[in-house]
Design a protein around this nucleic acid. Structure first.
Lengths: 339, 339
DNA sequence: CTACGTTCTGTGAACGGTCACAGAACTCCC
DNA sequence: GGGAGTTCTGTGACCGTTCACAGAACGTAG
């Protein structure tokens, strides 16, 4: 629009002039309203084609006070955004639902505080009617902005407790319990866990689920913790666990990346998987199918998370009570070769 | 904005009223213009804070005839979008540049003809001043729309020949030649290729580069082609190649996913990599570091592609001649364990 | 004291649509 | 032929900004 010399876009007035009718009638035809003569309708359609008219949605939205668009805001550092296939699936799920509701999904990546402010400004500009927010952080200025603007929003993942916003997530604890039970079911007797990210609810909940599954048989000495969900964390933690408890015959790794590291540590130590040691992961990320053997893991319904979050935003848009409650979605245990 | 009962947003008029000045003066303060008394400025700033004013960018853009936003349009089927780490990197590169120019990047995913139309409508609405388009297809209705609207746009990847739009891409042919030469340099004598996607320029160019590198020693019987860049394609193609030419000692796979399949087929056939057979891939995708051994492959400067495309759009926005020419970026051969 | 430049402010029009309202044209029936 | 109802059309106001212009207030020089 700012490019100099670009010819002016045709407006509804040009169409009206060309068709020999008024703006009002053109607007009626464009919006499919009744009470327009066949003659006028035909003339307007011809005129639209002739002058190459395309509606200016910005003007339309200004008049209608809505944007017909929903933001999809990803707040992740670069590495994770690239690494994590779940985000892509969430995005596509949200896109599917919003597309069905004829809403344009507009996705915005935040990777700095500056981005965060610009996005807040963007949201405030009436460009979007609502937002799906993925992995907001603690003390995220964006959440504050959303609250202030009272834009309908739904988070994917559990929000910091002080923020009252609807959210959808998975039951990390239940899923961790289920996959640990699978490990138990394959006859393992000495089951360890490589826990990670205990400072986040996902990490803590996965450990809690592991404990739930083992009950009395839970043994603290079989748990090794690491700060992040990383391949190398899994590798070193597995080495540590093997050194400490050589008779371990089952391992629940807090994520697939961690499990991949554990697998390589086991291979290096001459243990066979799954014959000597059963290994399970969490996430069903791209790691899971690229290890040897492939990982038995917990599948997150990532696409469904995106769909549900989008539906929640649409419901809020329809004026339905934005119950600020969380929804937990079910997960599946996916059986592959590693346990 | 459509949610019923939501309190009306404060406008510039409310601020003016509160501060006891006119709209014009408020606008001047908001835009940092000179010729405003310190007194008025202070009163306005206080009023802004008091009424909680946030500018309505839609109205602002309508008046200014610009959006201060650039679209990032990804036209890929779901699977590829999730699979291909290059797209994420391109996105982040573009985001970096646009963010620096204080433009909001708005990314839009197209996965159906319906999406395509909606995105075209979105672009026409004055929401964005320009667009970066990733992997547009042949006969893509979107490219037509962009042409019609004469929106500044730059493609990532080579466009269909009949469309005159600036683009940036990589030299698939040169890179394929370089990595094949690496294979030759490791002393391989019977080098095969698993080609793929020969109907796209990337696939055809990679085969051409392979041929360039081998010259006289090119042997058609050592080439197996498959329609898509897929793991299973690599696996079956490698089996076919081994059956046909058991003495093959080097393989150039047209993508990392294909190479991963080939690797597994070689393992199943009892060949050691790289001792018996050297394998190289293309893309430097996440597959490359997760195979055993890790892949020697061609690294695409994906982030740079995104940056360049964004810069090109910004240049067009500044009114610089949108030379409809392509730019080829350099690629690197990354040496890992597989050859 | 007047004329003039500088600094500051308010106003009306514009951006491109939608909508409510008024009224015209047409049909139908008495 | 006139009144009532239905169908169709045009107009002015409005959405929330920016901008050009007119003009006010003030200081300074002649």
């Amino acid at each position: 629009m700012s490019s100099p010399g670009r010819p002016r876009r045709a407006t509804i007035r040009d169409v009206a002039l060309e068709a020999g009718v008024s703006r009002g009638t053109v607007s009626r035809v464009l919006n499919g309203e009744p009470y327009v003569s066949a003659q006028a309708r035909a003339a307007i359609e011809a005129a639209v084609a002739k002058v190459g008219y395309v509606p200016n949605t910005a003007a339309r939205n200004l008049a209608l006070q809505r944007a017909q668009a929903v933001g999809f805001i990803v707040h992740e550092p670069h590495e994770l955004f690239l690494e994590d296939p779940n985000i892509g699936a969430i995005l596509l799920g949200a896109n599917r639902v919003l597309s069905g509701a004829d809403q344009q999904m507009v996705s915005l990546v935040i990777d700095s505080e500056r981005d965060s402010r610009r996005v807040a400004r963007y949201l405030s500009g009436g460009f979007v009617d609502g937002a799906v927010v993925v992995s907001a952080r603690q003390n995220d200025s964006l959440l504050g902005a959303i609250g202030r603007l009272s834009i309908p929003a739904t988070l994917v993942g559990r929000p910091p407790s002080e923020v009252r916003v609807p959210w959808v997530g998975i039951d990390n604890r239940g899923a961790a319990c289920a996959i640990t039970e699978h490990l138990v079911g394959t006859g393992r007797r000495r089951i360890g866990m490589i826990a990670a990210a205990l400072d986040r609810d996902s990490g803590a909940d996965r450990l809690a689920g592991f404990r739930d599954a083992l009950g009395d048989r839970f043994d603290e000495r079989l748990v090794v913790a690491r700060p992040l969900y990383e391949y190398t964390a899994g590798r070193t933690a597995m080495e540590e666990l093997l050194a400490r408890e050589p008779d371990v015959d089952g391992v629940f790794a807090a994520s697939d990346a961690v499990a991949a590291g554990a697998l390589d540590a086991l291979r290096a130590a001459g243990r066979r998987v799954p014959e000597d040691v059963g290994v399970v992961g969490f996430d069903d990320s791209s790691w899971a199918q690229r290890t040897h053997p492939q990982l038995t893991t917990v599948h997150q319904p990532a696409r469904l998370l995106g769909e549900r979050a989008a539906e929640s935003v649409l419901a809020q848009l329809r004026g339905e009570a934005p119950e600020p409650v969380g929804t937990l979605l079910e997960t599946d245990v996916v059986l592959r070769g590693s346990a």
